[in-house]
């Protein structure tokens, strides 16, 4: 038995993303952000995108390129405080921003990946975060209903990948990547090092390639992946 080869060129993988797609993007700050896939979307020019990402990176980095190029209609995120460009565009009404508490964002994505419709939580009860959300009582306790998130596309960044799309992450570059890799119909992963089948020991793969549709090898690592000197 041999596992299928899902290695795909960068251009081919990204060309499967349609205009108007809802896209999960891995990363917390710079680590774990799929910079190369993001640049390819800028090059191909898909429009009216909805991005779901923990944060908006920083001005001139990561998803900011897509915001600057005008390809993003809506951003669902936990904070944008490090990106003055996105704050300005939100205030000018050029981009819609929906905020979601970070832990709830992670759990909504996990639920979407796990085939669930929603989660129940007491986080945000009695605050502005509860507005417009259904509330249920269970065992004498109130909960907010937070919808699961499932997207058209997930853009994942891994340190190691094999040809089947099994993935391994390093350090704090893991963050939202494993949950997002389970929560989209088209999962594209960029791997810093792409290994042959068997190159990634079964115990070390953190995402099974069964969730992954395309794995893209990076020819070279851009400067953007490096240490940011602020």
């Amino acid at each position: 038995m041999k596992l299928p080869d899902k290695s795909t060129s960068m251009a081919e993988a990204v060309s499967r993303i349609p205009d108007g797609a809802v896209i999960l993007v891995g990363g917390f700050g710079m680590p774990g952000t799929p910079f190369s896939l993001i640049h390819e979307i800028v090059r191909q020019g898909q429009k009216n995108l909805t991005l779901i990402k923990n944060d908006a990176n920083e001005t001139g980095m990561g998803v900011d390129h897509l915001v600057t190029s005008g390809q993003v209609k809506r951003l669902i995120t936990s904070h944008i405080g490090l990106n003055a460009n996105v704050i300005a565009k939100m205030n000018a009404g050029e981009i819609e921003v929906e905020f979601c508490a970070q832990g709830i964002l992670a759990e909504r994505i996990r639920a979407g990946g796990a085939g669930l419709g929603a989660i129940l939580t007491d986080v945000g009860l009695g605050t502005e975060l509860a507005e417009g959300k259904q509330q249920v009582e269970m065992d004498g306790q109130s909960y907010l209903v937070e919808r699961a998130i499932r997207a058209d596309v997930a853009l994942i960044r891994a340190d190691l990948g094999d040809l089947f799309g099994n993935l391994a992450y390093v350090a704090t570059a893991r963050n939202f990547n494993p949950a997002m890799a389970m929560a989209a119909d088209l999962v594209i992963a960029e791997a810093e090092t792409l290994l042959p089948l068997g190159g990634l020991p079964p115990d070390e793969a953190q995402t099974t390639g069964a969730f992954v549709d395309c794995v893209v090898a990076l020819p070279k690592i851009k400067k953007e992946y490096g240490v940011v000197r602020r």
Binding site: Q102, A106, N177, A179
Partner: peptide
Amino acid sequence: TYFDSVASFALVR
């Protein structure tokens, strides 16, 4: 140790 955002907020909540 390192872990993903789901585990991180499970620890918190």
